[in-house]
Computed example of a mutant assay.
Amino acid sequence: MDIAVCDDNLSDREIIRQQLSIYFSDRFIEYNIDSYENGVNLIYSIEDGEYYDIIFLDMYMDKLNGIQVAEKLRNMNYKGKIIFLTATSKYAVESYDVEASGYLVKPHDIDKISMVLDRVLSNYENVHTYQIKKRNSVIQVLYSEIEYIESSNSKCILHRTDGNKYTIYKKLNDIEEEINHRAFLRCHQSYLVNMNKIESVENDFTMKSGDVVPIRTRNLNEIKKEYYNYIEYRGNIAGTTKRLKVFYDKVGGDFEVVKRRLIDEKYVVRFVQCFKNDTAFNELKKALNEELYEKAYLCAHTLKGSSVSLDFGKLYKASSALTETLYNINHNGEDCDKILIDKQFGEVAKEYKNVINSMQIIEED
């Protein structure tokens, strides 16, 4: 499955890419994700023959907004799915005019993304399943629903995530060969485990269900390394809970909230650090200096989106106020109050500097 993520905000692009990777990996759907920082480049790619099954499209972007990009794509006879990403529900009705399949309001949340994709892909057939013969019928079990399989004498028992167990009259070697997927690890002579369903590892694997799956003792370090490599493959990096809590206290966020939304602390670290490379603040400053208020509005809105996605509470409050002022100037015909704009930008600059400086807390050795 080919996916495009089009968003002018680097942090948001990385967050949605990671959450999509987890979604497709957990469901054993082969996928490829391409990123675009503006709609113009996306349109050019599709004009050149590129095709995407699903396009995730930010609503607020420079040059062309999400609705304009979608209209051009539909006029080019693009028939794939379009799912909008935005910080406001303002354009929800308009999205139906371009046959949008979904409308996700930021901050990005794996549960919300999963709910939309489960609906969009309800008839998607390229999903891995394992077939179990039972009398005169065949039970199809999704790979994503297999927790682990254990060998028991002359048969095997498949443990499903819903608690059901199925007897398979085959050798574990044969089942492993049939499944043949990177997510399944032969951790013991008698066990084949789905690494996506592992909660923790020490001398054994503890599964999300609470079951304990043994690891072959003589290959303990090797097997644990293989598991850690798989976790890294899915995008995890190191992080520290204590430092993240201190960081979020300083920037006015709630670490526990953002951790639940972004899955765990490892991803939080990655996306917070990614924010340093975002250009929205510098572009906002430049646009205000040049009195380009439409451009400044888009930049402020982008900064606001990053702040809500990463739960930078103080920066979100400051950028929201400036965004509202610039919106009223550009779209409601209000007079430009430069004193107010300077004051509000000063608050944004202060809180932006606070976020950047506070990152040292999670970057210490």
Rank of each mutant, 00 (worst) to 15 (best):
Y191A: 14
L192C: 08
L192A: 07
N194I: 10
N194T: 10
M195W: 05
M195E: 05
N196A: 06
I198C: 07
E199K: 09
S200L: 03
V201C: 07
V201A: 09
V201K: 02
V201Q: 01
E202H: 07
D204Q: 09
F205M: 03
F205R: 02
T206A: 03
T206V: 14
T206R: 12
T206H: 04
M207E: 06
S209Y: 11
S209I: 12
G210K: 04
D211N: 13
D211V: 06
V212Y: 03
V212F: 03
V212T: 14
V213S: 08
V213F: 05
P214K: 01
P214N: 04
I215C: 09
I215S: 09
R216C: 15
T217V: 11
T217Y: 08
R218D: 08
N219R: 13
L220I: 07
L220G: 04
N221L: 13
N221P: 02
E222N: 09
I223Y: 03
K224L: 08
K225H: 10
K225R: 13
K225E: 14
E226T: 08
Y227G: 02
Y228M: 14
Y228P: 00
Y228C: 04
N229L: 13
N229T: 10
Y230C: 05
Y230T: 06
I231F: 04
I231C: 14
I231T: 11
E232Y: 09
E232D: 10
E232R: 13
E232M: 09
Y233E: 11
Y233M: 12
R234W: 06
R234Q: 14
G235N: 10
G235Y: 11
G235W: 09
I237H: 04
I237Q: 13
I237L: 08
T240S: 15
T240I: 15
T240L: 12
T240C: 15
K242Q: 14
L244Y: 10
L244F: 15
K245V: 06
V246Q: 13
V246A: 12
V246T: 15
F247W: 07
Y248F: 14
Y248W: 04
Y248C: 00
Y248K: 00
Y248A: 00
D249F: 02
D249W: 01
K250Q: 10
K250Y: 10
K250W: 01
G252P: 04
D254V: 04
D254R: 03
F255A: 01
F255N: 01
E256T: 09
E256D: 13
V257W: 01
V257G: 02
V258R: 00
K259V: 02
R260G: 07
R260W: 01
R260Q: 14
R261C: 07
L262K: 01
I263D: 02
I263A: 02
D264F: 14
D264L: 12
K266A: 13
K266F: 06
K266D: 09
Y267F: 15
Y267W: 07
V268N: 03
V268Q: 03
V269C: 08
V269S: 11
F271S: 05
F271P: 07
V272Y: 03
V272W: 01
V272N: 04
C274W: 00
